[in-house]
Design a protein around this nucleic acid. Structure first.
Lengths: 300, 300
DNA sequence: TATAAACCATAACTTACAGTTATGGAAATC
DNA sequence: GATTTCCATAACTGTAAGTTATGGTTTATA
């Protein structure tokens, strides 16, 4: 788009045209009168035609100048709109965040951050996509979401950046309806003598469990498999057997003793919750701020 | 319209955004790469936000940058349109001329100039308004026409500029049907013994005639008064009496001897045809050119 | 009918900053 | 491992956008 004209001269032109007086225009522009005179002359030279008729009372537009002015008005309003728009985007006065996260993570982890963020920036729209991690990853690649918050580890993420944002602690848990509480440390075999309730594959949590079993030399097959993580806890509460859950996502049930944790050897390793973004990309200002709010809590 | 941003930076921004590569953008803009880098940085600083994500393969727009680009595209196309429009106006590739002139002047004086002009600048529209001079003058004041071509003198023109563009020679003329041709000089009284055909008031020609009569002490009352100048000649041709006409506007009839001139004492003074424009205004480029074409013939 | 005020144009001078060259570092490519 | 491709930075330079000072011309004012 090979524009040859110095666009800044149009600002001077606009001011002179509207006040009809070079001296007053100079005041308005906070520059000297000769500077304005020169600017107009330069513009006329560059455009190759006369823009103003100089009278003793000021200046008036030529017919061609009037035509030019109508274009210049558009240019300047559009420039002003551009600035305003950009400004309100970076000031988070408008905009949108699209988060990808499982229903569980959304409910037990994101909810308070969303509340906090929404209170700070009420005009930013928040869109949450709940799906399986594998689907979320393709949503991220396709640009349907800005970032994911998901259980780690997550495979196939060479083109993504991962930032740990919380530690998760998995455990076996059970209701007293099914098994009386004892202050003992269970072996894995003792656990497996019972009915086992877990999430159905594919799922990060289930993959983590499978891996734990395998590394302890166990070919594992649960008795009850459920797609929805939320239902796993419900099944445990109802006394269907021992379930595999994440403590952070079952705080309430554990605190009220509806279910209790079973200590087990070997110990189940710590797991992480991560923020996943596309490499060579950048979050918009709103999403950045949201992530920042999440991360300020890390290691608490 | 207080735009704070240096609009020229948008040209750089646009180029960088479209080629996605600062080095290539620099080539395209015929400036050095560091100049582009700096320009983008300045723009980012002025706008208060990041526009590009710098990768090792080039640069890509941030989300906010993309939004800005959509505005910038509009700005630059409008700027380009402005230049093009202005250019074609001053090059007379488009435009309009609005001339005010009597039917007589249009037919006998303007016609060849219009033909010439139209051949040179076929895309300029020409609009001719035929009215009495008094009406034309108000048309000019109201901006309905660009300039007038009219018989002089014309009163009430303090706010107008007049340029003489031709000399006119009035005369008494008659057809042999009415009066046999004699090689003699008539006195005014001899003329007035006959039926007199003239234009009806108000008209510049008639005013000139009245004035001529008055300065010779004659209370003048014509026998046949006609609004249309063209018809005056027709009435003379038809033998209704002696008519008062302008030689330049009856060339054909005089040459073919349909009517002939009556020499009279005292001599009728030369009159002028003038181009009338508004003071403190200016003709558009097309109208200027037209006037120039008329004036190049002056004093021939 | 001087006198002052209002405007734009011009000249000569003074920066500020848009441009330059030179160079470096870091990743992608061969 | 060498080369190329990019962007960033630093230090320098020249132009052109700004300045002040002044003049001429018309309009308003005393």
């Amino acid at each position: 788009m090979g524009n040859d004209i110095d666009l800044n001269l149009y600002k001077v032109f606009y001011t002179v045209a509207t006040v009809g007086n070079i001296t007053k225009a100079a005041e308005e522009l906070y520059i000297s009168q000769p500077a304005v005179t020169k600017a107009i002359h330069t513009l006329e030279t560059n455009l190759g035609g006369v823009l103003f008729i100089r009278t003793k009372k000021g200046v008036t537009l030529t017919e061609e100048g009037k035509v030019l002015l109508s274009y210049v008005k558009n240019i300047l309003t559009e420039a002003r709109n551009a600035e305003n728009k950009f400004n309100s985007l970076i000031k988070l006065e408008e905009g949108k965040i699209r988060i990808g996260a499982s229903a569980t993570v959304s409910k037990h982890f994101l909810m308070p951050y969303i509340a906090e963020f929404h209170k700070m920036y009420p005009n930013i729209d928040i869109e949450i996509t709940n799906e399986l991690t594998i689907n979320l990853i393709s949503d991220l690649r396709n640009g349907y979401v800005d970032f994911l918050v998901t259980n780690l580890p997550t495979k196939e993420v060479l083109d993504m950046d991962i930032t740990v944002c919380a530690k998760l602690h998995d455990t076996f848990a059970v209701s007293e309806k099914y098994l009386k509480k004892e202050d003992k440390e269970y072996t894995l075999n003792e656990i497996l003598e019972h009915k086992i309730v877990t999430q159905k594959e594919p799922s990060n949590t289930r993959a983590f469990l499978n891996n734990y079993m395998k590394s302890n030399g166990i070919e594992f097959k649960p008795d009850i498999e459920i797609v929805s993580y939320a239902l796993v806890t419900e099944f445990i509460k109802a006394g269907f057997g021992i379930g595999y859950i994440t403590k952070e996502f079952a705080k309430q049930e554990l605190e009220t003793n509806e279910i209790y944790e079973l200590k087990v050897t070997p110990r189940i390793e710590e797991r992480e919750l991560g923020i996943v973004t596309l490499k060579n990309s950048a979050l918009n200002y709103a999403a950045s701020k949201f992530v920042e709010i999440i991360l300020k809590d890390i290691n608490k």
